[in-house]
Amino acid sequence: MTGLVRHRSPTGPGPGALAATAAAGAGLAALLAALPFATAHAPVLAVALFALVALVVRDRLAAHHPMDRFGAANAVTLLRAAGVAAFAALALEPALLAGSAAWWAAAAAGLILALDGLDGTLARRQRTASAFGARFDMEVDALFVLVLAALALGLGKAGPWVLGLGLMRYGFVAAGYLAPALRAPLPPSFRRKAVCVFQIAVLAILLAPPVTPPLSTALAALAFAALAASFAIDIRRLLRPPA
């Protein structure tokens, strides 16, 4: 999470809430990866991936979080990251998602998506909104899209191009190093958030067993087109010469 404005509180966020949330998240990651699947590899890998996310959050927290507490909103985002870690573990073994397991996965993906609106609501109500929280939420969303796209590919729901749904945002970030204008901040956008929710919803639907090609391919292509159009709008705005 580089590029955030540094805001250091006098004492910094206490480690207790982060540690408690991380412990709960590790348990959640293991649970999601283990049920109803009968493999020992998925839970272990899910916890390892989540631990990596938690360590990155801990490393960035003191330097970039302006509050003196971790906050309920960030706790929800970290718990969502646990779910994403579980899906990342499953993406490496897509054969696990067959029959009823696929329905469980689709429902879990829908739950993680539903929680995406909760962290922002909590931040506004508790007045704990920050650049750190917004970036944290965005990074979890981006990783979730990439993981679900990998699952869609592994399950044969679409071709390799579906990974573009998850890689497009990272490509945009990389392009910013070649064209500094692309690193300029963008104003909040309902369109951007709606497209993010749409693509996650589509990828979650693709996990359902009845959704197979050509329907799954068409849905993925629709999400791809919406995301590409959204990026095109932002790139055009950032590269537009100043008036």
Rank of each mutant, 00 (worst) to 15 (best):
L143E: 12
L143R: 11
L143S: 09
F144S: 07
V145R: 02
L146T: 00
V147E: 00
A149C: 15
A149Y: 04
A149K: 02
L151V: 07
L153S: 02
G154H: 06
L155G: 01
L155P: 01
L155E: 06
G156F: 09
K157A: 09
A158H: 06
G159S: 14
P160A: 15
W161D: 05
V162D: 00
L163G: 03
L163R: 05
L165W: 05
L165Q: 03
G166A: 10
G166W: 06
G166T: 03
L167D: 04
R169V: 09
R169G: 04
R169D: 03
R169F: 06
R169W: 06
R169I: 06
G171A: 15
G171W: 12
G171L: 15
G171F: 11
G171Q: 13
F172M: 10
V173S: 07
A174S: 12
A174T: 07
A174C: 10
A175E: 04
G176F: 07
G176A: 08
G176P: 06
L178R: 11
A181I: 06
A181Q: 08
A181P: 05
L182T: 12
A184D: 03
A184T: 04
A184S: 05
A184I: 03
A184M: 03
P185I: 04
L186W: 00
L186G: 01
P187T: 05
P187K: 12
P188L: 09
P188S: 11
S189G: 13
S189C: 13
S189N: 12
F190H: 14
R192D: 13
K193R: 15
K193H: 13
C196Y: 01
C196T: 13
V197W: 13
V197I: 10
F198T: 12
F198N: 02
F198R: 03
Q199T: 04
Q199W: 06
A201H: 03
A201Y: 02
A201L: 03
V202K: 04
I205F: 08
L206I: 04
L207K: 08
A208S: 14
P209D: 11
P210V: 02
P210C: 09
V211D: 10
P213A: 13
P213I: 12
P214E: 09
L215E: 13
S216A: 10
S216F: 05
A218R: 15
A218K: 13
A220K: 01
A220I: 04
A220P: 00
A223H: 04
A223L: 04
A223I: 05
F224K: 09
A226S: 12
A228G: 15
